[in-house]
Amino acid sequence: MPSPRIRPARGGGDARCQGRGDGTGLRHRLLTLLETANAPRRLRYAQLLAVINVWPPPNDPAPALAWFAEALRARAARHV
């Protein structure tokens, strides 16, 4: 069982904190956010910011975001 400090960071815990259930609506909103965050222009914007501000180049989050989105879709397909 996760510690009480970690539990609210999970999807269902966050939904309960906001008075919503961990259901298809939450997963749909999360999937929309993941797809938006995985836009190629977001990475390009971060790369340009790094050049302008002399920061190290950012890591590409696309593989992790795509994996997470696919996992949500697979879970939704199982629970239809």
Score class of each variant (00 low, 15 high):
R10L: 09
R10V: 10
R10G: 06
G12T: 06
G13R: 03
A15H: 07
C17F: 08
C17W: 06
C17H: 06
Q18P: 00
G21A: 10
G21V: 02
G23A: 09
G23D: 08
G23S: 10
T24W: 08
T24F: 03
T24G: 04
G25D: 10
L26M: 13
L26E: 06
L26V: 14
H28P: 00
H28R: 15
R29H: 07
R29I: 03
L30H: 08
L30K: 04
L30N: 01
L31A: 04
L31N: 02
L31D: 04
T32L: 03
T32R: 02
L33M: 13
L34I: 04
L34E: 00
E35A: 04
A39L: 08
P40I: 01
R41T: 11
R42M: 09
R42W: 04
R44F: 00
L48P: 01
L48W: 14
L49Y: 15
A50I: 09
A50P: 06
A50N: 03
A50L: 09
N53M: 15
V54P: 04
V54T: 12
W55D: 06
W55M: 04
W55H: 13
W55A: 03
P57L: 12
P57V: 07
P58V: 15
N59I: 13
P61K: 13
L65G: 00
L65D: 02
A66P: 01
A66K: 02
F68I: 00
E70P: 00
R73Q: 05
A74S: 15
R75V: 14
R75Y: 10
R75A: 10
A76Y: 14
A76H: 14
